[in-house]
Design a binder for these strands. Sequence first.
DNA 1: GCAATAAAAATTGTTGACAATCTTTGTTAA
DNA 2: TTAACAAAGATTGTCAACAATTTTTATTGC
Lengths: 235, 235
Amino acid sequence: MFGSSEKVADGAGDLNEEVIVDRIYQAVIEQRLPPGTKLSESALCKAFNVGRMRIRRSLLLLASRNIVDLQSNRGAYVSSPTSAEAREVFEARRCIEPNVARAAVERATAADIETLEEHLGWESAAHRQGDRQQVIRLSGEFHVKLAEVARNHIMHRMVKELVTRTSLIIGLFGAPGTANCHDDEHADIISALKQRDQDQVAQIMTHHLQHIETQIDLTARRNAGVDLTNVFSDE
Amino acid sequence: MFGSSEKVADGAGDLNEEVIVDRIYQAVIEQRLPPGTKLSESALCKAFNVGRMRIRRSLLLLASRNIVDLQSNRGAYVSSPTSAEAREVFEARRCIEPNVARAAVERATAADIETLEEHLGWESAAHRQGDRQQVIRLSGEFHVKLAEVARNHIMHRMVKELVTRTSLIIGLFGAPGTANCHDDEHADIISALKQRDQDQVAQIMTHHLQHIETQIDLTARRNAGVDLTNVFSDE
DNA sequence: GCAATAAAAATTGTTGACAATCTTTGTTAA
DNA sequence: TTAACAAAGATTGTCAACAATTTTTATTGC
């Protein structure tokens, strides 16, 4: 329940940049790291129990994905997308994800579909139990997992970045308590996937993304800051 | 004509990572840095006249875009895409660039079209003069400039990365002397752009990308290495 | 009490030295 | 001559100390 337990928990230790970047991605997706949160080097060093260089490299990578802003001599902050940037993110998703879904139809194995259905099960379970954080995490991850099924590393990486940024956008512009997605639309996607109907999958995805975009309002801006030590504790 | 002139030329100096990354992108696009070329830190330090840290950060950024491979304890090498990766790059381009072209139709100003036509002029001039390196550079850049017209930073960045990787792929798999694109197809794109016909622009782009993909053969693999000091000299 | 200023603390940026690893060179023996 | 091995050299990875900047705290004057 405290940051340093990171090291204690898996004493094997020495996480590489990829792991650190991924953990921060996760934290952003789950909205445990709201936009604007300062990511100080020393705090991250303690949280992940690694040297400062490792952290700096991780922050650079996150900045190159627009997940954090690196301000000269002032430190790293979780990115706060502007409304213009938000529009770009959604446009990019509308361009890419329907095609990702198409590719997923082409390449989905029975095991893939099973995995997605299992995921959907978790999603609706979290929804029923009112576990908001899990709902957020799982609904975002659905898109990433679908991109995995598409078996294109470039697009997978892209979707991961876009989903993460969407989480930030929803955190800033969405109505409080709004999740990323409605799981029933995810169910429709899986259903079309099983029927191997590329056009329909693409169409549902397009509509789904439009739906998400509808749920946000580009005016009000919440701010927030959290304690890093707690964010990265073992749950 | 030699590396250290870099500093002498613009003594203002102190290039930041963005500039260094961009210059290496350029060099890769123009195939002055063939796949497999070792990018040793000391050589780059001399070439750009910056400290090692700056170079290491730049290499990390390039690695995160799959332009260079970072091998532990062995150094950085210009990426040598496998045939599988090549397929992923082309698939990604087919997914993204037709939509980029569509967006460009939506947002192109008269000035934008003029810029593109001017660029096309340079392209055909280079083609006529048989200046292969310029042909390569300009034909790749056309796609990047089109992405600029689309006014979406995410997609612009994406196209830049994909075009650069395509240069590597052509260098490895393409017939020797093959350029990136045929400029007449670029002319068709501009023409459709002027008519504001989104569907047609997308269709031409799709066909154009297929054409590029056709020109490569996924069997033979050339190797090469060059002298860094010459590559980054002022032309 | 409040604003402005100055000192102190904390944080980030950079550099250089050292350790670890790989590569090359040279030597020896089969 | 070739292969295996050892030493030397070069390159990359890491760390700790220092410099530069920002943020916080304390003080002074109004």
